[in-house]
Amino acid sequence: MTLTPYWFFVLSAFLFSTGVYLAVTRRHAVAVLLGTELVINAGILNLVAFQQLYPERMDGQMTALFAMIAAAAGAAVALAIILNLYRNFRSGNTPDSEELKG
């Protein structure tokens, strides 16, 4: 039994579905953000694992680095938006922001 990229793939599938579960069930916007971070991390884990199939190229690892940069920028902007949500509705829970609800 040797360590193959398939092991990483199974773990990242588990991380992905847990992240989807978190993002779908939670009411607080920060918890939804936590769920999306898990999903992004599952993707990055796959990129790093599949890099091993092509050791002569570095595309997987480079894409992983840029995905990390994009995720960090996304988290910063998302938290600014959550902060505004909290200021406008006095609550961080997503169901409370229902001003546009018809």
Partner: peptide, 9 residues
């Protein structure tokens, strides 16, 4: 950032 977000909201 996430922990700051929790503290603030």
């Amino acid at each position: 950032l996430v922990l700051y977000g929790v503290m603030l909201t």
